[in-house]
Computed example of a mutant assay.
Amino acid sequence: MAEMKTLTAAARSGTGKGAARSVRREGRIPGVIYGGGDAPEPIALDYRELNKLIYAGHFLTTIFELEVDGAKQRVIPRDYQLDPVKDQPLHVDFLRLKAGATLRVDVPVHFINQETCPGIKKGGLLNIVRHSVEMRVPADAIPDAIVADLGKLEINESLHISAVPLPDGCKPTQRDRDFTIASIAPPIAAPEEPGAAAAAAAAGKGGKGAPAAKAAPAAKAAPKPKK
């Protein structure tokens, strides 16, 4: 389950691009809290704290106890924008989490037992089809990851979502088919060099090489002049 973290913010009155630029000039990042049946709430967050949280990883699957001017509420980030040049946060959206709520998140897939996978030991190649799976999960029990065991896969075999244990209350959003998570592809044969192929073909014809060229007839000596 994802760990809950604390975060503080301040309410802001202005909205729109001009107000957002003003907040950024103060060293803060504009954001919005929405959902849960309440009106959207514009907020401003500390730039350094938010930037650190985003680049620490798992930001979009972390539940925060967000305190805004003394009032606390549970939220989860749903989206954020980065500057296309500087990669600095520009805006963030939070979703309110009410009791018993569920939400859709991309849950990472962790692969285990690659070193004992019989297909890989025979030279097969691991083909990861899905690095994450979109799932509907309880808001208070978001998994950090799901675990895919490769320990029994042979070459040309696949691991499907039905073979991956899922945490209680978590279900894939795609329910119409048993989709593939990973497979073991056959090893890639090295291409044969043209010279080696020609030599092998010649050897296959009775084991003899090309016939030797006939020697040119010896030149006749010129006749001696008569005295």
Rank of each mutant, 00 (worst) to 15 (best):
L53F: 04
I112R: 12
P30N: 09
I43C: 08
S132A: 13
E67F: 09
G35P: 14
A39N: 12
L126C: 14
G36I: 10
G124D: 10
T62K: 03
D106C: 10
I112K: 12
H58N: 08
I63V: 05
P30A: 06
V92Q: 00
H91Q: 07
G37T: 09
G27C: 05
I146R: 00
I112Y: 12
E67T: 13
A71M: 15
A101G: 13
S132N: 12
P42I: 04
I54W: 06
D87P: 02
D140E: 13
K72G: 10
F94E: 07
V107H: 02
E49D: 09
A145E: 08
R21Q: 07
V147M: 02
N113I: 13
L82R: 05
F64D: 10
T116G: 13
K152H: 14
L103H: 03
Y80C: 01
P42A: 09
T116I: 15
I43R: 02
G151I: 14
I33L: 10
D38H: 02
A145D: 10
A99N: 14
R136V: 08
R74Y: 06
V85K: 15
Y55C: 04
D140A: 11
G27Y: 03
E65P: 10
I146P: 00
R25H: 07
K122C: 04
I128G: 09
I29V: 14
Y34R: 13
K86P: 04
H58F: 05
T116H: 15
Q73D: 11
P89D: 11
P42C: 06
I120N: 14
D87E: 08
N127V: 11
E26L: 01
V109G: 00
G57A: 12
R21A: 09
A39R: 12
D149F: 06
S22V: 05
V105P: 06
Q114P: 14
D69E: 08
L66I: 03
K52F: 15
D149P: 07
L103C: 02
L90C: 06
I112A: 11
I142W: 03
C117T: 09
Q81I: 03
R78T: 10
R74S: 07
K52M: 15
N127Y: 13
L153W: 09
E115R: 15
G123M: 05
R28D: 00
P118M: 14
E41L: 13
K52R: 15
F111E: 03
P40R: 13
H91I: 04
L66E: 02
Y55I: 06
G27E: 03
